[in-house]
Nucleic acid binder design. Sequence first.
RNA 1: GCCUCUGUAGCAGAAUCGGUAUAUGCGGCGGGCUCAGAACCCGCGACGGACAAAGUCCAUAGUUGUGGGUUCGAUCCCCACCAGAGGCACCA
Length: 799
Amino acid sequence: MNYDFKKIEPKWQKKWEDAQLFKAEDFSKKPKFYGLVEFPYPSGAGMHVGHIKAYTSIEVISRKRRMQGYNVLFPIGFDAFGLPTENYAVKTNTHPRIITDVNIKKFSDQLRKVGFSFDWDRTIDTTDENYYHWTQWIFLKLYEHGLVFRDKTLVNYCPHCKVVLANEDSQGGKCDICHSDVIQLPKVVWYLRITDYAEKLLQGLNDVDYPENIKLQEVNWIGKSTGAFVDFSFNGVDEKIEIYTTRPDTLFGVTFMVMAPEHPLIDKYADRITNMDAIQAYREECARKTEFERTQLVKDKTGLKIEGLEAVNPVNGKVVPIFISDYVMMGYGTGAIMAVPAHDQRDWEFAHKFGIDIIEVIKGGDIEKEAYTGDGEMVNSGFLNGLTNKKDSIAKMTEYLVEKGIGHAGIQYKMKDWAFNRQRYWGEPIPLIHCPNCGVVPVPYEELPLRLPEIQDFEPGEDGKSPLARIPEFVNCTCPKCGGPAERETDTMPQWAGSSWYFLRYVDPHNNKAFADPEKIKYWMPVDWYNGGMEHVTRHLLYSRFWHHFLYDIGEVSTPEPYAKRSAQGMILGADGEKMSKSRGNVVDPLDIVKEYGADTLRVYVMFMGDYGSAAPWNDKSVKGCRRFLDRVGGMIDLVQDGDVEELETAVHKAIKKVSSDIEDQKFNTAIACLMGLINDIYKAGKIGRNQLISFIKLLSPFAPHITEEIYAELGGEGFLTVAPWPEYDEAKTVDAMIEIGVQVNGKFRGKVSIPKDCSKEEALAAGKAAPSVARFMEGKKLVKEIYVPGKILNFVVK
RNA sequence: GCCUCUGUAGCAGAAUCGGUAUAUGCGGCGGGCUCAGAACCCGCGACGGACAAAGUCCAUAGUUGUGGGUUCGAUCCCCACCAGAGGCACCA
């Protein structure tokens, strides 16, 4: 009973589109549902099966919501700026605009063939000037509010891609794009002050429905720690050296101090330091180390004592030596630490290597063997002696520091500011101007969009400059402030810029007066359900939350958090259980599946292959099984009778209940398994009522919309199944009249009995005892306890 | 090193509260249909040993990575361990 998917799939796709079934209606009186998927980067390779899995979940929810009477916004767009396109442009000497247009066309065609119910009228493209106009606008707002700054620092630089990378894009010391080793390069870069929003990004997690592991990953990434800043001083010099510590209670255990090699106070007191040459040599050695080497050397601490300078502990006046070491970093805290080797493992290792004293101030461990970081009685600690609780001693010490004016409580975050520029062509131009008189001047809002000039040569500059720097017509301009000659910033924004606010553009994609109409934002936002990959948790998700919080603070959007609910799909692995990759040759092209088995089969398969959030290997045989299931669905048309089939009634109502709740819980695999079970029952019965079949195809419709729509038409259904009301179940009909219940003796399963669903305890117990397989085990024993859990179990305890 | 998660049949994967472990699909086995079939239909099993098998017996037995514990009863809760995945990684 094969159905001709090649004919019916395009047919219904066209009919749905002609009937505009997926058009979201602004300000509709119906309840709204905004379902969002991470818009694709339109690569030349076309869609990956991973895209299908990522999109089908929200697709299923969106289709179900429409049937439930919601006004649904389910949009799609293209995140099209980025390096792969530009690299391909350089390689083929084709303009990135042309490549992007071709790829977007390809992706759109593919997405349509899978039957996704996107509202195509709202499609966006981040490289469209009508879109990046507003990316630049938001950037200028950030600038206006002091959240954009320039700093000269060591940056992660990829020599292959010739770009500066954010920490997030160079994890593990490898370039995220080409995987070559990243080197450290001194450079002036633009930053967005995301750290100003660390607390809001942390607190905001309390108000959203994200899976715990995603929340946790963001919390760890933000890395909040509470502690204290304490002022140490140099012996004999009037100078404060501020340190940050999470354990101010261990101040009496300080036996040395460590500063980051590049700490500026070292240069300030260079004339007092007698081994400056050695320090310079150590600094150079550190700068040469790659990220990889640094992580490999975690266990083996290196460092150098500063000769000629010593530090004074402010709580006891003790003079301690100062070291420099690259285990202390300039980028966290104050770039200097107090070292308490007895109670910090890193300090302990350093002290051991350099023969420094270790003074115990908390009892409980064996500091000969390792640092002790647990709780215990304070000793050798003056006024803290005798306290046994970490919290109390930290509080008492902090109080003391404030009283003496030598320190105060403080908070630190691990998160770094966001390096926000790239030296490449295919990105949003940064709308800033460098004027010799006025300094940095923003491009006036009315001059936006600042267009990317049409150029022929996209080769990145050897000097680490953007190709835009070679276009005098672009670079040379007049200063909007003083009218004098000035130069434009030639760097462009990073890949993450356009995706940091795209969900706002969907609510009003054609607006040319604002990024979106405030009323439409109020109507549609927040996104009700956003699905995407785990790999974006500490990047796109965090970045877009940051921008949205900012836009909320300046009154541009209606809620602080952009996404009410977030979910994440598990990866689809190759048939060999390994990550899909061209080099392994285990890549599955979703369009091949559509061609061979149909879009419905592909959709059902990716939803059925396992727990949605877990990784699962591709299995061609299992794809065929899904196709077989759909063929059996099509075959039910031959079993239809007018009236309901009584014996199937309970199974149908159970299925409505289970499929409805399973979809909400993202248990798509069990929803489909339930329908597979039901169809087995139907074939066993050899018949099905017309209305029962309609309920069945409604439940399947979000997963397999084409075949179900076709069956609905054959049954003479009115309108489209796609927007027919979602079936309801009768709770009373979801329970069987007679239930089978397990009977245990001493907790061991010994048999089962069939009893009426609402029978009394006495009846149940009697039935249990009467069962021959059970009676055997109770013969000659004394019954001490009878347990009856209605609907669950009978248990007889005997001796 | 720290944090999080996972471990169920040959494979993938089910199992609201602690209550008949293994739904569903793949693969396997048996049968039907057929000239034939990897197509379709029907059925079966999966967890020790014995008998050719139904069944019976060992056996009031065992069974969810391993070993303990709590409980009338544990895939589920607690403790310890083993294995795998992911995240962070000298964050003071």
